[in-house]
């Protein structure tokens, strides 16, 4: 239990730190959302000053931070200048779309990587393993951006899959089944791009972790007892190799969130990516801070999940009495 408490304290510390850091950066920011208005002769300078003071852009940083925390407690996360509403509801819609994408990718990628990596480790050094290693190396070389654009070019040439957005224009009129089909079709390209971008990393690590365990004496003994190969791999070797893989799970969430940010923009998926980009270009600072904080929350949440998994998978951690 102490292990879990320590992990959650750590997570809270990270969130606090990131929010402070983000606010500290806003001091460095030259200009604000209202600067564009200065160019407009129809807006009086007094109006701009009034707007700035209304949104507290003229107050010292600690005051703004405290007010922002209070607004966070109210579930607002500050105020978006561009949308003229609290940030939280805006962000949540986008975050939901991003989560839909990333969770699907996570499940798919691990679902493919585990059997593939284990199979590869089982055939270590033989032809299929070498082919797979070459394949993953080739995928590893291709940057996300190049991969996503390439998939788009191919999809446009084929003309079968929708190449942007999340739903079709007539989405509201479709039946439930039609809606699901439409959503899945729109998800196909971004999901494919993201899976292909995280898969090589996962497969390689699974392969290395399992291959290392397969050399252990207890597995040789188990093999000598005539335990079937499949049981040996999945029931004996996999749990023993779980520790580095759970750490990788936490790490892969970060990679995936970053990848998703870019691929959402390229494939115009209405998630956090395009929204954040728009906010940066408009200097809508509270939206930027909110988006960054939310991504940290996802990452921290994912890592917490990884810690839970580790707690469940590794008896050594359960018996450890604090350190």
């Amino acid at each position: 239990m102490r292990y879990l408490l320590r992990r959650s304290a750590h997570a809270a510390f990270l969130l606090l730190g990131v929010s402070l850091l983000a606010f500290a950066f806003t001091v460095l920011a030259p200009g604000s959302y209202f600067d564009e208005m200065r160019l407009n002769p129809q807006i009086a300078p007094e109006t701009i000053v009034a707007l700035r003071s209304r949104y507290e852009l003229d107050r010292p940083l600690p005051v703004r931070y405290v007010h922002w925390v209070i607004s966070l407690a109210h579930g607002d996360m500050g105020f978006s200048f561009a949308y003229n509403t609290p940030v939280a509801p805006l962000l949540l819609v986008r975050a939901r779309n991003t989560l839909l994408l990333t969770v699907t990718v996570m499940l798919l990628a691990w679902g493919i990587a585990l059997p593939l990596g284990i199979w590869s480790a089982d055939h270590l050094g033989r032809l299929p393993d070498r082919l797979l290693s070459w394949g993953t190396a080739a995928l590893l070389v291709i940057p996300d951006l190049v991969l996503a654009l390439g998939l788009l070019v191919i999809a446009v040439k084929m003309g079968r899959l929708p190449t942007g957005g999340m739903v079709s224009l007539n989405f509201e009129n479709l039946s439930f089944l039609g809606k699901t089909r439409d959503l899945l079709l729109h998800m196909a390209l971004p999901v494919a791009a993201l899976v292909l971008s995280v898969l090589p990393l996962l497969v390689r690590h699974v392969r290395a972790a399992v291959a290392e365990v397969l050399l252990a004496p207890f597995l040789l003994a188990a093999e000598g007892h005539g335990i079937p190969r499949r049981t040996l791999l999945y029931r004996y070797a996999l749990p023993a190799a779980a520790n580095p893989l759970v750490a990788l799970f936490g790490f892969s969430i970060g990679t995936l969130l970053s990848g998703s940010l870019l691929i959402e923009v390229v494939m115009s998926w209405p998630g956090l990516g395009p929204f954040l980009l728009e906010a940066i270009l408009a200097r809508d600072i509270y939206v930027v801070i909110g988006g960054v904080l939310l991504s940290t929350l996802f990452l921290v949440g994912g890592n917490f999940l990884a810690d839970l998994l580790l707690y469940w998978a590794d008896p050594r951690i359960r018996t450890e009495t604090g350190a």
Binding site: L14, G17, V18, A22, F25, G254, T255, L257, S258, G259, L261, L262, L276, L277, I280, V288, I289, G291, V292, S295, T296, L299, V300
Partner: peptide, 11 residues
């Protein structure tokens, strides 16, 4: 703790 692309964007 921050996903690197988010960090890059924020900076």
């Amino acid at each position: 703790a921050l996903p690197w692309l988010y960090l890059l964007f924020a900076l």
